[in-house]
Design a protein around this nucleic acid. Structure first.
Length: 219
DNA sequence: CTCCCGATAT
DNA sequence: ATATCAGGAG
């Protein structure tokens, strides 16, 4: 396919072609957080705010070894909780939010992590990124597109959104992609963002989807 | 917009 | 030594 043809094809078509290539590049891409239960996924995702999944996975074995479920996390000593999550950064906020969120899960949601966006957003430390991750991976629900820093950066670089606010980027992507592919999109953009299209350097010479990227399309 | 904070790349 | 990474709340 020529560049001219690509530039004339719709954004939707280009998004699907990008997704298809990424699917072959990262066939086994999954959520890279380690967890056993929905509560653990929620907690790990809260911890992943402004922190790599790799680092989160270094603290969660100790954290969940000590406090495995919503009840124990809700009743945890805050100082001990802070110490366990310290290395993920913003540890006072995260410890407080995890304890409070687990308290709400126990008291308001029968110890079950809610499977509704509106409910999840009531939990402290949980906004759309975290809620989308939990819904997609704990419950298989594609409520939206997970827009973390990688999805944001790559979607912008690819020329699939002009917006800068994550919520608007999410709306753009939801219109561009079929719902069943929403989480596939996020997961694979995150993989590609970590491996190739990095924040500091896009790595275009190594990039297998460069031909489909904005900068290589003649407008 | 500012604050929250440790880890790592440069 | 310092810039940059990586979400949410107020």
């Amino acid at each position: 396919m020529t560049r001219k043809t690509l530039s004339k094809s719709s954004k939707k078509q280009r998004a699907l072609e990008i997704l298809s290539l990424l699917h072959h590049l990262y066939p086994d891409a999954t959520c890279s957080l380690d967890y056993q239960t929905p509560v653990q996924l929620l907690v790990a995702t809260i911890l992943s705010a402004q922190c790599t999944d790799e680092r989160v996975n270094k603290v969660t074995p100790h954290l969940f070894g000590r406090f495995p479920d919503a009840e124990s996390l809700a009743n945890a000593n805050i100082l001990e909780l802070e110490e366990l999550v310290r290395s993920t950064g913003f540890y006072r906020n995260k410890a407080k939010n995890i304890k409070a969120a687990c308290g709400m899960i126990v008291n308001d949601f029968n110890s079950i992590v809610p499977n509704k966006m509106a409910e999840l957003l009531k939990l402290p430390g949980v906004a759309r990124k975290t809620a989308n991750v939990v819904l997609a991976h704990a419950y298989g629900i594609n409520a939206g597109v997970t827009v973390d820093t990688h999805v944001k950066r790559l979607s912008q670089r690819l020329g699939l959104t002009k917006n800068t606010e994550p919520v608007k980027i999410e709306q753009d992507l939801m219109k561009l992609l079929p719902q069943p592919e929403w989480e596939n999109w996020s997961i694979r953009l995150i993989y590609h963002g970590r491996a190739v299209c990095k924040a500091r350097s896009p790595g275009c010479d190594m990039c297998k989807i460069a031909d489909l990227c904005k900068q290589n399309l003649s407008i």
